[in-house]
Design a protein around this nucleic acid. Structure first.
Length: 563
RNA sequence: UGUCUUAUGGUGUAAUGGUAGCACUGCAGUUUCUGGAUCUGCCUGUCUAGGUUCGAAUCCUAGUAAGACAACCA
């Protein structure tokens, strides 16, 4: 979020920033900049919303304007307070604070009054045909619509019926208010768009049963912008065709030089996931994920639980930019962003996910030596800590091979390897059970090679992480991977449930972590050395430590093996 | 036989009529007490055809391809 002046000068503007700067230069709207983030409280925010949030709040912040949060709560059937709280929480977690929080429902009276005006001007009428009939009369994109028989209803009658729409005297679905524009318009949205419908079945989460007639998006959204003084109304590409109607409504009511301007940008599409609210809701309701905050979900709360930091999300959104081109963003770039961020900030710790015992045969039994180790090689100020070294350790099973290929730089009989922050040891053999499974590995240490001593600088090819068997703490580690096994599940004709990655979650229950992790707090980030970035799951407790893998470290050995 | 919009390496994004650059990915190397990170190098691109211009990724025309629009959703 911070950029120094030199960087800012070099950075090229995206097309929206360019518009904003031009408007500022032209002194439009008295040089005011005002944006809004207008979520509908009917679901949890996802990374696509984060892209919009960064733009809405970012433009305001960078150009000395303000950004309000406005809940577009015009459909009581779908909306709920549950979502209002989570939305506010997620925005703040991303590092933004709205100037005011508004609700479209705050404007129900104003919107009502304006539509009365419109009716009185003869520009709106009550239609009492069925939804199906109205849809049929709309025509198709290539065929003009036909006019409703109620289109020329007398003004007084319109007024009377409109009032009845709001008193409960008119049944849900029986009548609507439509703007009288042009049924033959090549833009479908101009074919007498609906302005109001009746909803009697659900109370509104804020206004209760006060209103029975509810305004529709095209009318409510633009006018809400206008009431608030929004100058730049930023939204995604699919609203492009709505813009002429947005402008039309503004023109009907505008009473000064001020006017809000709608600008559309491309939405965020991430590979290997779905972003539609409907599909995400199905994943949750059908138990295909553990909830909205399942670490595999692209929701803000899911990413947070997965171990993503706000900084990483900002950095990612910065990299993908804002254009009018419908993009497919590589989830690899998001993973890169979080690695880049966590590499600078995460404390390095030792954790053994798939343990096998390593016995240092020439190390005294019962002896405990405290080894000093750096918390973060990328950040001197992170300091150091001590970890216990003993005769019996755990290392990763994958770090040992009895018959190793030439390029295997880890533990194998006869080869020297470094135990990170401790000693150089030489493998002397192993013990296997009757099935050939390796039960113990043996090695001898060279006490002159203790970290920090001159002999420690000896060249050895491999360095392994380890924990002391008697000090290590048991932990559960959840290994998350991409939710879907194919790149673009939304474009696939198969049912999206069939495209889920069966290996998107692996739970490892037999992991050992160094003792310092016993006091880690929920959501704390760590790098498990040589493995990846992990954070503490909110369900973790002193009795049962639980870690989530945010993302693996790049693994050039795995790549080598796949050749 | 509509309206609107878009098209730059595998992906994303710059170049605002004047040397097609950056990031991710991939590959090769350097370095390293993380096979991480770092550092270096390399591969790969202006949808097509015309036109305007001294000069076009950029402007114009036509094509091609893709997306949005026919909810009493937002």
């Amino acid at each position: 979020m911070e950029t120094n002046n030199e960087e800012a000068a070099k950075k090229s503007l995206n097309f929206i920033e360019a518009f904003v700067e031009q408007d500022l230069k032209d002194k439009k709207n008295d040089g005011r900049i005002q944006t809004r983030f207008p979520p509908e409280p009917n679901g949890y925010l996802h990374i696509g919303h984060a892209k919009a949030i960064c733009l809405d709040f970012g433009i305001a912040r960078n150009y000395g304007g303000i950004c309000n949060l406005r809940f577009d709560d015009t459909n009581p059937v779908k909306e709920d307070v549950e979502y209002v709280d989570s939305i506010q929480n997620d925005i703040q977690w991303l590092g933004y604070q709205w100037e005011n929080v508004y609700y479209a429902s705050d404007y129900f009276q104003q919107l009502w009054d304006l539509s009365i005006d419109l009716i009185q001007q003869g520009k709106a009428y009550i239609d009492e045909q069925s939804a199906e009939t109205i849809a049929k009369q709309k025509g198709t994109p290539t065929v003009a619509g036909t006019e409703s028989p109620y289109r020329n209803r007398p003004i007084a009658e319109n007024l009377e019926l409109f009032k009845k729409m709001n008193t409960g005297e008119i049944a849900e679905g029986a009548m609507v208010l439509r703007a009288k524009i042009d049924m033959a318009s090549p833009n479908m949205h101009f074919r007498d768009p609906l302005m109001y419908r009746v909803i009697t079945s659900h109370p509104h989460h804020r206004t209760g049963w006060t209103w029975k007639a509810y305004p529709m998006y095209d009318y409510a959204h633009g006018q809400s912008d206008y009431f608030e003084g929004v100058t730049h109304s930023l939204c995604t590409l699919e609203f492009e065709v709505h813009r002429p109607l947005y402008d039309w409504f503004i023109d009907q009511f505008k009473d000064s030089d001020y006017r809000p301007r709608q600008i559309e940008f491309n939405r965020l599409n991430l590979t290997y996931t779905v972003m539609s609210k409907r599909k995400m809701l199905q994943l949750v309701q059908e138990g295909l994920v553990s909830g909205w905050d399942d670490p595999r979900m692209p929701t803000i709360c899911g990413l947070r639980r997965r171990g993503y930091s706000p900084e990483a999300i900002h950095s990612f959104i910065d990299k993908i930019g804002y254009t009018k081109f419908e993009a497919q963003n590589d989830v690899g770039l998001l993973e890169h962003a979080v690695r880049e961020n966590l590499n600078k900030t995460a404390t390095r710790v030792n954790a053994v996910l798939n343990p096998v015992k390593l016995i240092v045969t020439n190390y005294p039994e019962g002896k405990v030596e405290m080894m000093e180790t750096g918390n973060n090689p990328e950040d001197e100020s992170a300091g150091t800590r001590e970890i216990p070294f003993t005769r019996e350790l755990y290392i990763e099973r994958e770090d040992f091979m009895e018959d190793a290929p030439k390029k295997f730089f880890r533990m194998t009989p006869g080869q020297e390897v470094r135990l990170k922050s401790a000693f150089i040891v030489k493998c002397t053999g192993c013990k296997k059970n009757e099935n050939g499974l390796i039960e113990e590995i043996y090695c001898e240490y060279d006490e002159l090679t203790k970290s920090g001593m001159p002999e420690a600088s000896r060249k050895v090819k491999g360095t392994l992480h380890w924990v002391s068997a008697s000090h290590a703490v048991k932990a559960e580690v959840r290994i998350y991977d991409r939710l879907f096994s194919i790149e673009n599940p939304s474009a696939d004709e198969r049912d999206f449930r069939d495209l889920l990655n069966p290996d998107s979650l692996k739970v490892l229950t037999n992991c050992y972590v160094e003792p310092s992790l016993a006091k880690a707090k929920a959501l704390d980030h760590f790098q498990f050395q040589r493995i990846g970035y992990f954070n503490v799951d909110p369900d973790s407790s002193a009795e049962k430590l639980i870690f989530n893998r945010t993302v693996s470290l790049k693994d050039s050995w795995a790549k080598e093996q796949n050749k």
